[in-house]
Write a protein that binds this DNA or RNA. Structure first.
Lengths: 214, 214, 214, 214
DNA sequence: TATGAATGAGCCTTCATTCAT
DNA sequence: AATGAATGAAGGCTCATTCAT
């Protein structure tokens, strides 16, 4: 009588969940809005996913898998690629992910993920382990290749210094827009910003590698 | 019958608000818990602050003013200080603020603030303008002094690269703890981390200043 | 556990609403009392009607429709009926409605309606248009037939003089009971009072029709 | 520190009570609004009048005394006045009171009084006895003089028929405005309406006096 | 498989009143 | 005589979830 979309209810629920959780977050989102958008019954979320929270986790997982697919940190990298080349690919793919593909729903969900990183909910641990850790280890490998002989702690610190420059464009997106809008990360200036971060970081790495004489 | 301290209710309410809002955030916090902790009536929040939201704003404002007082970005700086000295003070005070003074309530509130930066609520704009902007402009002044003749866009980017390295310890605190616990920012390694960020950044700035030859 | 009659909740709510709103009015009535009486959950009113106010409107509408059905102003009137006969039917049906059928709930609701006439709430306009206006126009038609050639203003005034005599028994019911209890409108004296109003009004109309000679 | 008006707080409270109770009625009015307007403390109403309800009664009493003073039903009447003259004075003074003097506060309070007549609150009885009864008895005396020999019941009914025509302009003020705005009672047409009611009523009385022959 | 009805816990707020000062 | 602070009761409403169908 009311069946609307071609996909099954569960799929529509997930889609609606992406949208509503993206916009309002876990707590502020309401099951009712999700079900309205999905053109499903109020009970549908509990029926298909068990609870509001479990739908939230499903949404996050779905989002994360999509991002991983869309933005591999080693896209086009070959065994012959130099560390610098590999670092550039890494940084750029990171920035590309932050910029997003223009889909506002994905953009909102990115914000939710950021929130989970700042303050992980109980459901986030496994997601974290499966996504963030390998990604970060890839960066450490690159940096390690650029600083032969340096201890792991230094490697980690360098990796953090690089990653910090990238994530700022995610975390502080709003702040940047307000304070230095010309710095805002956009599809159009991604290469320029990648260049800058590369140059700044290579300068930093060089300094670390050579130490401060005298 | 339940009177705890005559005329201190408002202050106790603010204190309890810090604690409860810090732990649960605006939406998840309940007026009832706040009032219970403050040993006040359920109506007390509305009476003294007008509404739950207004108490939240008061809490945030109070927190921010405390932080500003505790961690001035130019502590001990004199007109004779060199840009490098001033940058070091800036970076260290930033890290000191992130580490906190051990008060778990303040730590939680810091997380709320971070959340507001990622996704500012309607109440945050003015707070933002009065706190973040001047702080960031101070950093830009320092960087400008280190890159004479460079255009403003480059100044901004350098400032961002520096700030990104610092805020990572705030934003990604949880992630760092899980992935590279030896990197976790603590009172005991603040100087060491400050040194590293300084060295990395000075290397980066030098590279930017001299450009890439050849 | 408390389920009373499956699927009858909405009807029971309306019934309870009639009772409670009738007794206490919109503001003084509480959703809780209504739900208690209806043996429903506190949330039931919002669930089925959207809000307390909307239930109130539903109650009023339901009451009005019942009254209209029970007391048509032209009951038994035929095209052959004389104006005097039609006026008598009109007056009597009006008084019958005021007397009521002995159901105290309906009586209370009548008082609410009276209140809405004195001071219409925002919800009352449409109800007013659909009920009061047509009823009153019917009376004007009757009076017009009794005063051929008179201008509309005079028709209106006569209609008002007649209606005023009727509604007094509604509006001033309490006052009459206290001051001249023998005048109180009851099922037993409806005909007698109808006769009086008819005679007084016919005298008045005759006077208006003939003007004051000399 | 905040003392404002020249009168004492109690007088200002009464004035504010007239305004707020007039606008919102007993239940909907709030002590806070009254005290705000009176520039007094929230506790002032309880302090000076004992409770919200008692202030309400005081307001009503004050209003009623004013009306009695402003609109005596026998203004200008002398022992030589004929019953018809006295009836005209009575009707006109009634209509004058309904029209009011343009003070919106008084107009609102009139509505409250009307409400009390429809559904007397517990506090209204004495007020009722002291005001409505004598007024109505005066009308009955007039009518009695016009219908010598008629029994009291007929006197009462005639009085009601007359009074009904008058109060309609009060009770149904809103309805008249909507349905037949040209009939609305205004200062400018008071004489015209008085004339009409007089003529209609004298016709009615004549009919009652002479009975229906045959 | 899916739903409409119903629930119960809980939330923020309002308000008249009280009390110590 | 008057007040600012504080209270407790209550009120309307929201929401995730359950259940019979």
């Amino acid at each position: 009588m009311k069946k609307a979309a071609p996909h099954g209810t569960k799929a529509r629920l997930l889609q609606a969940g992406r949208q509503v959780f993206g916009q309002h977050g876990l707590k502020n989102a309401t099951v009712r809005e999700i079900c309205d958008i999905a053109q499903a019954n109020v009970a549908a979320v509990c029926y298909h996913f068990g609870s509001k929270e479990e739908l939230y986790v499903a949404v996050l997982k779905d989002y994360l898998e999509g991002e991983e697919r869309r933005h591999p940190r080693d896209k086009g990298v070959t065994p012959q690629s130099t560390p610098v080349e590999r670092l550039r690919v890494y940084v750029k793919s990171f920035l590309l992910q932050i910029v997003g593909d223009g889909d506002p729903v994905n953009e909102c969900l990115g914000r939710r993920l950021t929130q989970e990183i700042i303050e992980p909910s109980q459901h986030f641990s496994r997601i974290f382990e499966r996504h963030c850790r390998p990604t970060h280890e890839m960066l450490q490998d690159i940096v390690r290749a650029m600083l032969p002989g340096k201890d792991e702690s230094t490697i980690s610190r360098c990796a953090s210094s690089i990653i910090g420059q990238c994530v700022l464009f995610d975390f502080a997106k709003e702040a940047i827009t307000r304070m230095t809008p010309e710095l805002e990360l956009k599809a159009s200036n991604i290469d320029s910003i990648t260049d800058f971060i590369m140059e700044f970081s290579l300068g930093g790495i060089k300094q670390i590698r050579e130490g401060s004489p005298t």
